[in-house]
Amino acid sequence: MTLLRELITARDTLGMADSGVNRRTLLGGTAIGLAGMAGAAGVASAEPAGAQATAMGPWTYVPPGESIKAALDTGARAVQLGDGDYRISEPLVLPSGATIRGLGRRTRLLATTTMTTVIAIGNGGPVESVHVADLLIECDGKASTGIDLNVVGTTGNYYWEPDSICRLDNLRIYQPVLDGVQYRGEDTQSCVSSRIRVRDAGRYGYHIQAPDNWWIACEATTSKQTGSSAGFGVFGANNFFQSCKAWYCRDYGFHVRGVRNKFIGCEAQDTRSHGWYIEWGRNVYTGCSADSASFYDVGGTAAAADGFYVVDGGDTSMVGCQAFDRKADGHAPQQRYGFNVPASMITNGQLVGHSGYDNVSGLVNRR
Rank of each mutant, 00 (worst) to 15 (best):
Gln182Phe: 00
Gln334Leu: 06
Glu6His: 11
Gln52Phe: 00
Ala268Tyr: 02
Pro95Thr: 08
Val198Cys: 07
Leu149Asp: 02
Val21Gly: 07
Ser190Asp: 14
Val284Thr: 13
Thr116Pro: 05
Trp276Ser: 00
Ile165Glu: 13
Pro63Lys: 07
Thr301His: 07
Thr188Leu: 01
Gly125Gln: 14
Met56Glu: 13
Leu110Lys: 13
Ala220Val: 02
Pro126His: 05
Leu136Val: 14
Ala328Ser: 14
Gly314His: 03
Leu81Tyr: 05
His131Lys: 10
Asp297Asn: 10
Leu135Ser: 06
Pro63Thr: 08
Gly320Asp: 06
Gly231Glu: 04
Asp315Glu: 13
Trp215Ser: 02
Ala133His: 02
Ala44Glu: 12
Gly287Thr: 08
Glu279Arg: 01
Glu219Ile: 00
Gly141Glu: 11
Pro58Glu: 14
Ser193Thr: 14
Val177Pro: 04
Gly124His: 09
Ile196Gln: 03
Arg326Glu: 15
Ser229His: 06
Ser289Met: 09
Asp85Met: 02
Arg257Asp: 08
Asp315Pro: 00
Phe235Lys: 02
Ile147His: 05
Ala305Glu: 04
Gly281Ala: 02
Ala44Asn: 12
Gly156Lys: 09
Ile264Phe: 15
Thr54His: 13
Gly39Leu: 15
Tyr309Asn: 05
Ala303Lys: 11
Pro211His: 01
Val319Ile: 15
Gly349Ile: 02
Ser228His: 12
His131Ala: 08
Gly314Tyr: 02
Gln225Ser: 14
Leu3Asp: 10
Gly122Met: 06
Gly330Ile: 11
Ser193Asp: 09
Thr112Asp: 11
Tyr277His: 07
Phe339Asp: 08
Gly156Val: 06
Arg336Ser: 02
Val360Cys: 08
His255Gln: 08
Asn348Glu: 15
Phe339Met: 08
Leu34Ala: 12
Ala49His: 07
Ala332Asn: 12
Glu6Leu: 11
Ala31Gly: 04
Thr113Ile: 07
Gln269Tyr: 04
Trp276Gln: 01
Asp148His: 08
Leu27Gln: 08
Ile165Thr: 10
Gly362Glu: 10
Gly338Phe: 06
Arg203Thr: 01
Leu4Ser: 11
Val234Glu: 01
Thr60His: 00
His255Phe: 04
Gly265Tyr: 04
Gly338Ser: 06
Pro63His: 07
Val93Arg: 13
Asn348Phe: 11
Met37Gly: 04
Val43Met: 15
Ile88Met: 12
Leu14Val: 05
Tyr357Asp: 04
Asp212Asn: 03
Val319Tyr: 13
Gly146Ile: 05
Gly202Met: 10
Gly281Met: 03
Gly42Val: 11
